[in-house]
Nucleic acid binder design. Sequence first.
DNA 1: CCATTCTTGACTAAATAGGTCAACAAATAT
DNA 2: ATATTTGTTGACCTATTTAGTCAAGAATGG
Lengths: 141, 141
Amino acid sequence: MIRTHKKEQYALRAMLELAKKSGKGPTKISDIAAAQAIPIRFLEVILSQLKASGFVDSKRGFYGGYYLLRPPDQITVGDVLRFMQGDEDPAHRVSCMSKKECPFNCDCAFVPMWTKLNKAVFKIYDETSFQDLLNIERRRH
Amino acid sequence: MIRTHKKEQYALRAMLELAKKSGKGPTKISDIAAAQAIPIRFLEVILSQLKASGFVDSKRGFYGGYYLLRPPDQITVGDVLRFMQGDEDPAHRVSCMSKKECPFNCDCAFVPMWTKLNKAVFKIYDETSFQDLLNIERRRH
DNA sequence: CCATTCTTGACTAAATAGGTCAACAAATAT
DNA sequence: ATATTTGTTGACCTATTTAGTCAAGAATGG
């Protein structure tokens, strides 16, 4: 099993929700949480972090909430995941273990496979914009 | 970050070690553990589980140990990982979360992306046989 | 000034990965 | 035989990480 963290999932879903409302003013955390079935307190933390990415911004007060800073076709899943994953060595985003803890110093027969995997995975992430996701959702209804 | 479990890593490494010794009789758990830097008690458990896969078998006693039941070019990384991952729904080996816990019952805009990812990842796993890994290792020396 | 909403860091809970152990069973050596 | 080596198995432990909560405070708009 390979599974992304819930936190990353929630970040993607929150972004999708904001993409839906793109251009319609701020969306409240509580609305995003309800729409995407995300624990609200946790979402507060996640959105707050996401602000540093430059993809979203927020406004306080009565008509406050979060909103996208770019159109949905200019943000990809890869962008968001890379940000959520921090400054991890790009070559190790998908791998056996972090370079430090590898007893073979990441010089083993499996390395080429992990490299391939890394590229294949992020190629797909990078090819998926939030506009693409919106289109998929629309086609479903 | 997407990272395979240590247990799966250890299984792959143990198999690689057995591939190296393929045709040379049984290899002791302790030797595999030493060669591949795997905690021996943990490796006992892993190899024991691997027997059920049909890729390896074991022999007890003085000249005992583990050995492959097929030549290294007839076992792939995909084979081993699929086995270690159990009877997980194939479509969810790489995904956001298990079908049960998905609040949208796995019917959301992200599904096509996870499906693509799943296929891409296992394509690479399935294309990598232990003979391939041995060849890589030989080329390195 | 009041209601609403985001902000932030500290905190806690729960899950699971990762690892350990010990008593036992089988094979071989002598 | 029997001592030694080696695999078998299920129960057990625990450190880490993920996941989630909270509360006091700071903007914002009415």
